[in-house]
C-alpha cells in the first residue's frame, strides 16, 4: 500500500476532506473552525474549500458545510444531533474535549440513547472530535482527558488514535459510522509525523487493537499519546534485556479484549498506562478485565500508571509531574518484574 508521510493534524484534516468530498451530507460545526481555521489549525483551509462557493451559503456570511458556531457546547451538540437524526453526518469539533463537559447532557442523555429509546427508528451518525488531554501549560480547565467518561456510556463509541495512520483510518470509520463517536486527539500528537496510506478508502475498524511493538516479557497497554510514552519505556527496557510488548488499544468502546488478553497470555505481566486521572480512569477498567479474565496467565498483579489525582496545575514543572512519563512506566514495571 503506497504511503505518504504527514503529521497527525494533516491526517485528521485529510480524512475530513476526503469524506466531505465523497458525501455531501458530511459537514463540520465548531467554535472558530471556519474563518479562524481552528484553534489547533486542524480545519485550516476547509472554510475556503467548502464555505465560500455561492451556493453553499444558507444566509449571507454563514457557510453551509463549515459552520462557525457561538461558544455554546450544549447548543452545538444538540443542534448536530437533530441534523444527524434526519441523516446528515455532522462532525463537531470541540475546541478542547474539556469543554465537552458542558455538553454531557446532550452527549450522554440524548445522543447515546436515541437509537435505543426509538427502538432503532433513529440513528445518530455524529462525530465529536477534538484535542483531549494536556497540551502545554493550559492549566486546570483545558487539560482534562475525558475519554474514560464517554467509554462508560452504552450507545457511544470511543476511539483514541496514537499515530497519523490510525487517526486517518479511524476517523474515516467514525464519519461513516451510524452511531455517535467520540474521537479524542491528544494535543501533544498533532505535530508528530508518520506514514499514512494514500488510498482514499483506507480505514481501520473499531474494536481492533494494534501491537505497536512486539515483545515477550511484559505487556504495556495504552492508548493515544501514552502509546509513545510506553514505546520510549520499552526502548529503555530493551537496553536492560527486558522485551516489552506495547499494545495500542486505539478503540476504547468497543474494546478489543482479545488482543489484550492474547498479549498478556504471552508475556504473563501487564501494566496499563493512561493520562487521565488514575482514580477511576479507563485504564482501571482495562486492568480489571485483565485481572478478571487472565488470572491464571498472570505472574504478577496488573500494574497501573495514571495521571496524578489533582487538577492540572499551570506551572510546567508541576504539569510534567502530573502526566505519566517513561520513568513512571519503568517504576511500575519494576514493581511487578
Amino acid at each position: 500500500m503506497p504511503t505518504i508521510e504527514m503529521t497527525y493534524r494533516d491526517a485528521v484534516r485529510q480524512a475530513m476532506v476526503e469524506e466531505m468530498d465523497a458525501n455531501p451530507d458530511v459537514f463540520l460545526m465548531g467554535e472558530d473552525i471556519g474563518r479562524y481555521r481552528g484553534t489547533f489549525r486542524v480545519t485550516e483551509g476547509l472554510y475556503d474549500k467548502y464555505g465560500v462557493e455561492k451556493n453553499d451559503f444558507i444566509v449571507p456570511g454563514i457557510a453551509r458545510r463549515v459552520v462557525d458556531t457561538p461558544i455554546v457546547e450544549p447548543g452545538i451538540v444538540g443542534f448536530a444531533i437533530g441534523a444527524a437524526m434526519v441523516g446528515l453526518r455532522p462532525i463537531v469539533e470541540m475546541m478542547t474535549m474539556s469543554f465537552s463537559i458542558l455538553a454531557l447532557d446532550q452527549i450522554i442523555n440524548h445522543a447515546a440513547k436515541i437509537h435505543y429509546m426509538t427502538a432503532g427508528q433513529a440513528k445518530v451518525p455524529l462525530v465529536i472530535r477534538g484535542p483531549g488531554g494536556a497540551a502545554n501549560q493550559l492549566s486546570a480547565q483545558h487539560s482534562h482527558s475525558v475519554e474514560g467518561w464517554y467509554a462508560h456510556v452504552p450507545g457511544l463509541k470511543v476511539v483514541a488514535p496514537a499515530t497519523p495512520a490510525c487517526a486517518k483510518g479511524l476517523l474515516r470509520t467514525a464519519i461513516r459510522d451510524d452511531n455517535p463517536v467520540i474521537f479524542t486527539e491528544n494535543p501533544g500528537l498533532y505535530g508528530i509525523k508518520g506514514d499514512v496510506p494514500e488510498d482514499r478508502e483506507f480505514s481501520i475498524p473499531f474494536g481492533k487493537a494494534r501491537i505497536a511493538r512486539q515483545g515477550t516479557d511484559l505487556s504495556l497497554i495504552a492508548y493515544s499519546r501514552m502509546v509513545h510514552v510506553c514505546l520510549a519505556a520499552a526502548e529503555q527496557l530493551a537496553e536492560r534485556g527486558i522485551s516489552a510488548e506495547v499494545v495500542d488499544v486505539r478503540s476504547l468502546l468497543p474494546l478489543d479484549t482479545e488482543t489484550i488478553f492474547a498479549s498478556v497470555a504471552k508475556t504473563h505481566r501487564a501494566v496499563v498506562v493512561y493520562e487521565d486521572w488514575k482514580n477511576g480512569g479507563y485504564g482501571a477498567e482495562i486492568a480489571a478485565r485483565i485481572a478478571e479474565e487472565c488470572f491464571d496467565d498472570l505472574d504478577a498483579p496488573v500494574g497501573r500508571v495514571g495521571g496524578l489525582n489533582v487538577p492540572m496545575p499551570y506551572s510546567r514543572v508541576l504539569e510534567l509531574e502530573c502526566i505519566p512519563n517513561a520513568d513512571d512506566v519503568l517504576a511500575a514495571v519494576n514493581k511487578i518484574a
Partner: peptide, 16 residues
C-alpha cells in the same frame, strides 16, 4: 429544555 437544540438541528437539516 434538552431537546430544544435538536429541534433547531432538524430545521437546519431541512434548510441544508
Amino acid at each position: 429544555g434538552g431537546h430544544t437544540p435538536l429541534g433547531a438541528g432538524l430545521a437546519f437539516a431541512s434548510k441544508y
